[in-house]
Write a protein that binds this DNA or RNA. Sequence first.
DNA 1: GGTAGTTTGTAACTTCCTGATACAAGCGGT
DNA 2: ACCGCTTGTATCAGGAAGTTACAAACTACC
Lengths: 206, 206
Amino acid sequence: MADQLTLGVAARLSRYLQVLTQAKRMGKTSISSQAISEYTNVNPTQIRRDLSGFGKFGKRGVGYDIDTLIAQIRKILRTSGQHNIALFGSGNLGQAIAGSGAFADHGFRVSAMFDVDPDKVGLRIGDLTVRHYSELPIVVENEGIEVGVLAIPAAAAQQVADDLVSSGVKIIFNYSDALLSVPSDVTVHTSSPAVELLYALYFYLS
Amino acid sequence: MADQLTLGVAARLSRYLQVLTQAKRMGKTSISSQAISEYTNVNPTQIRRDLSGFGKFGKRGVGYDIDTLIAQIRKILRTSGQHNIALFGSGNLGQAIAGSGAFADHGFRVSAMFDVDPDKVGLRIGDLTVRHYSELPIVVENEGIEVGVLAIPAAAAQQVADDLVSSGVKIIFNYSDALLSVPSDVTVHTSSPAVELLYALYFYLS
DNA sequence: GGTAGTTTGTAACTTCCTGATACAAGCGGT
DNA sequence: ACCGCTTGTATCAGGAAGTTACAAACTACC
């Protein structure tokens, strides 16, 4: 399937989605392009142009209904519905991710959690039981895992990435600071909060 | 001070920095624009153009020395040296952040860690002692805190943001899913891994 | 010492994304 | 009925980024 959206549009729609989800959580039901602009630093006109390309979602004089707009953007991004993710590592970070609503709010379900430490295997975290790493292939198959999230030390990351690729997973979210090598049809997204901070700091110092 | 770099250039330099730091950690000492391109999806010519605007950092036929390039980019971004950050919340996420080298590798020092729970205050995490939240103003003053990192529930986030602003902190890194209101001279960066995943998923599905 | 293969630094050209500006149409409240 | 607000949309200008091309410099190998 050919890309319909450019990188820029998809990136901005994602940011709108973030703000909309937060606003919804704060109890708001409606929001204007002006308000979205303040939280995203995207020009209000640009926001309306991005959205109007796909339909007329707003009400003049009022703004956009948040629930409607969230649903519409998820439809545009073709990411409606549930997506299953597998979480690797049950340390502090793994538990924090499993316990937060961060993923659940956007349609991601943490369907499995793995560790290699025998002391951790069998542990219940929320409503999940930590499974042994060796079960990876069968779980990916049975649970329909689309995304692997790596909350493990850098030294172990490449091995897990390789095994995920072998099992057919095409999207990896990497919280370690390893530089992962994967086939070109696999997407790796590495979280690096410090680099994002440096970016913010640059504009603050300016 | 006027901005010298455009948003795009600063964003790309930050990404190069991320890859360079990872590559360095993997034991590499040198890297080509072609290799950086594979990890950032930025055109090699664009990378060379970005860098050549500030000096001749590479060696023809060889590539870029990683240590040198990291130092140069940090200089361009004017974020060399140490920056002090304060961490709020000593739960799983707070402990994960405090324990990871993610920030330290980029010149950020977690100088203080706060919690409101009396059971947590006094706890030693790594080489930090959890302090009570009421000490916030004095710590910001004494330790020269530039950044506040919020690893706390959404319900508490706005209050902490307000207090940080009152104490003069201008950069807030928000791990909660609260939508924070701050004065226009304060930068809020909210982490939302799920939205980044949706973005990645869109391009995978295409 | 010479030669082939890399890779940087840089120029020229083209495409198209983004910001700026403007305004009619529609909605809500007074 | 009127006024204010906000969307949806058009137009225009500026500039950012991709593409292509190539000389210069470095390494390694013969």
